[in-house]
Write a protein that binds this DNA or RNA. Structure first.
Lengths: 339, 339
DNA sequence: CCTGGCACTCCGGTTCGACGAGTGCCAAGT
DNA sequence: ACTTGGCACTCGTCGAACCGGAGTGCCAGG
C-alpha cells in the first residue's frame, strides 16, 4: 500500500503545511523536496494517500492538507523527537534553577514551555496522592480548631483547617501530633490509610473518639479528594491561529479554564518515560477536538509527580514541541527529586 | 455649549452603539429614542459633540461612535450604576455562601463576575499588608530550618521556609513562637515592625542573634515584599470581540497574564466606597489601551482587603457592569469580614 | 433655533472576468 | 508495472467596475 516514497510524500506534506499554513500542491512539493520524481507521480501518490485517509482536500483545486490520521502516522513513524540545542538546554537549566520554591518552579516551567514552543503551556503541581510526607504539622488554633500543614517531598505545602467535635487541650494535641507524625513521616500519601490503621487502638481511650474523627478528615482531604492544582500560561499564543479557526477559539479557551478538563488531559497519560501526543479528534475532551496536546509526566519512572505539556493547533511542530516538553519535564523531575 | 438635549443625544449614541456595535446615524437615532426633534437637528447636535471630542466618525458617511472622552462623560454624568435585581442578588449570595475556604471564595467570585458581566473577571486575594494576624505558627522542621505559617483574619494562609544561620533546639523555637505569637496576634501586618520592635531587647541573650535574623526574614517576606495573588477568569469572553479588533486581542491577553499588570490595575484604585472606571487610553497599562476596566475594592472602607473587577472593550455596558462589580465586591467584603 | 431639502461622500456588497494553482486522467515511454 | 508529460477542467482568489444606501454638511426658509 504505502511504499517508502508515499511516506516520504506524506512527511513532506506535513512539514510544508506546518510551516506555511497553506495547502501544499504536487508541483511545489516535487521540486522543493528533492524527491527526484515528477509532479504527476507525486499526484498519484497523493491520490493513494487520500484514499487511505491520511490527507484531504479543502476543495477541488487546492493542495492537500494532512488529516488527524495523517498527523498520527507522521508522529508515530516519520518524525523523531527533536533534541534541544545545547544552548537551549543550558537556558532551561539556568532558568529553572533560579526558582526559590515550588510555586516558583511551576510558574517558571509554564513560562518556559510556552516561550519555547510558542503554544499554550500547562503544568500540574506534583500530585498529592503520589507524594510522600516530609513533615506533617498539627497546630492548635483554638480549643476546637486545628490547622493541618502538610509538606511533601516535592516541596508542596498544603493546609486545612479542621473543626473538631470536641475541645482539646494542648497536651492532647501534642500527642495527636506525635502519633500522626511518627506514623506518616516519610510515608507516601497513598499509604497513609495503612500507616494509620493501628492508630485508634494504640491511642489512650480518652482521646480516641476525636482522634478517629481527625483521622477521617485527614484521610478524606489528603487522600480521597486530594486537591490538584494546575497552572496555565501563554494563552496569547492562541491568537496566532485566530485566522485559521475563529469559531473554535472560544471553546478552546473555555476548555482551558476548566481545571477538570486540564486534569483529565494531564492525568490520562503522565508517564514520565515518554512523551505523549493526542491529535485532534483523539482528544475526548469537548472543545479541544481541533487541537493537539503534547504531554509528559515528570518525576521518577513508575511514580510520576505530575504532568506537563502544551496545547496547540493540530498543525504544530510536533518534533520540536515534543523535544521541548520532554526536556522541561526531565529538568523539572530532576529538580524536584533533588529538592 | 452642551445643553440638555445634546447630552441626551450623547447618551442615546452610547446606548445604541453599545448594544448594536454599529455606528449610529442621526435618522435612526431621532426616531428610536423619542427626542421629539428632526434628524437635522440631531445632526447639528452631533456636529457640536464632535467638535468637543465626545464622538467621532469612522469615515465620512458612517454614523457616529463615542470616543473615550464620550464614554467618560457618559459614565460620570449620564448613567447611574444599575442595581441588580433581587433575584440576581439572591443568586450571588447563595453562590458565594457555598464557599468552604478563601480559595473557594476567590474562585467563585471570579466565575460569578465573569458570568454576570460576560467579561473577563479579575479578583485579588486579600492583600497581606492590609490584613491582620489571626495566628502565626512557627514549626521546627529541622535543627536549622523553620516553617512559618501565617493565617490572616481574612482566612488567607501563607507559609515560608526559613534557613537559619544557626541550629536551635525545641525549647528555643517554643520561646520564639510565643514571643512572636503574643506580639503579633491580632496586629495588622503593617504594624508588625512596631509590634516587634522591643523583641530583641526582651529576649534572652542566648537566642538574640538568631531571633533578630528570623525577625528580619519575617518582616521582609511578610511586610516588605508581601506576595499578592490574583485570579483571572472568563478570558473566553474576549473572543466575542475578536471581530472588532483582531490585532488587539493578543496584547490584551498578554497583559492579563502579567501579575504585575493586574496588580497595578487593581492596586491603583481599590477604594471600597465606590466603583472605579478606567476607559481606553486612560489605562496607563500598555496593551489595555483599547479596553475599559471596572474595579472596586472590597472590605471595610478605608482599609480594603483587596480589589476586584472586570476588563472588557470600551464599548461595554458600563451601568450593568458597575452594578455587578459593586454587588460582588460588597458581598465578598461582608463574607470575609464575617469569617 | 429648528427644519426640510439637496448635493455629495464613501462604505459595503455584488457581479464579472481573468488568472493561476492544482487536480485527474490518459496515452506514451521506459 | 511504474513513471511521465500533456491536457482539459475545476474552482478559489483577486481586482475592477458598479450600484445602492446610509449618512453627512450646508443652506435657505419658517
Amino acid at each position: 500500500m504505502l511504499d517508502d516514497r508515499k511516506l516520504e510524500v506524506l512527511r513532506a506534506i506535513v512539514e510544508d503545511f506546518v510551516s506555511t499554513t497553506e495547502p501544499v500542491g504536487s508541483k511545489a512539493l516535487a521540486q522543493r523536496h528533492g524527491l527526484g520524481v515528477s509532479p504527476a507521480t507525486v499526484r498519484n501518490d497523493m491520490a493513494a494517500l487520500e484514499d487511505e485517509g491520511f490527507i484531504t482536500h479543502p476543495h477541488t483545486s487546492a493542495g492537500r492538507i494532512p488529516t488527524d490520521k495523517g498527523y498520527r502516522l507522521f508522529v508515530d513513524k516519520l518524525s523523531s523527537v527533536k533534541p534541544l540545542s545545547p544552548a537551549e538546554r543550558r537556558a532551561i537549566q539556568s532558568f529553572l534553577e533560579g526558582a526559590v520554591d515550588l510555586d516558583d518552579v511551576v510558574r517558571r516551567s509554564v513560562r518556559l514551555l510556552s516561550q519555547l514552543t510558542r503554544q499554550v503551556a500547562v503544568v500540574q503541581y506534583p500530585s498529592l496522592s503520589r507524594s510522600s510526607v516530609r513533615h506533617l504539622e498539627i497546630v492548635h488554633l483554638a480549643p476546637n480548631r486545628l490547622l493541618l500543614v502538610l509538606i511533601t517531598d516535592t516541596g508542596r505545602v498544603e493546609q486545612r483547617v479542621l473543626e473538631l467535635p470536641a475541645t482539646l487541650n494542648d497536651d492532647e494535641v501534642a500527642s495527636l501530633r506525635s502519633a500522626f507524625g511518627s506514623r506518616l513521616h516519610g510515608a507516601r500519601l497513598v499509604d497513609a490509610p495503612a500507616a494509620l490503621a493501628d492508630l485508634p487502638d494504640a491511642a489512650p481511650t480518652a482521646i480516641r473518639p476525636v482522634l478517629t474523627s481527625v483521622m477521617t478528615v485527614v484521610l478524606e482531604t489528603l487522600v480521597d479528594q486530594p486537591e490538584e492544582r494546575i497552572v496555565l500560561g501563554g494563552t496569547a499564543h492562541l491568537t496566532r491561529h485566530v485566522m485559521d479557526f475563529p469559531q473554535t477559539l472560544r471553546p478552546v479557551l473555555e476548555a482551558l479554564e476548566e481545571q477538570v478538563v486540564l486534569l483529565k488531559l494531564l492525568g490520562e497519560v503522565n508517564d514520565p518515560s515518554a512523551v505523549h501526543v493526542k491529535i485532534g479528534e483523539e482528544n475526548n475532551v469537548e472543545g479541544l477536538r481541533s487541537t493537539s496536546v503534547v504531554t509528559m509526566g515528570y518525576g521518577p519512572d513508575g511514580s510520576p509527580y505530575g504532568g506537563l505539556g502544551v496545547v496547540g493547533p493540530t498543525r504544530m511542530d510536533y518534533a520540536g514541541n515534543m523535544g521541548s516538553v520532554r526536556a522541561v519535564a526531565r529538568y523539572v523531575g530532576e529538580l524536584l527529586a533533588g529538592a
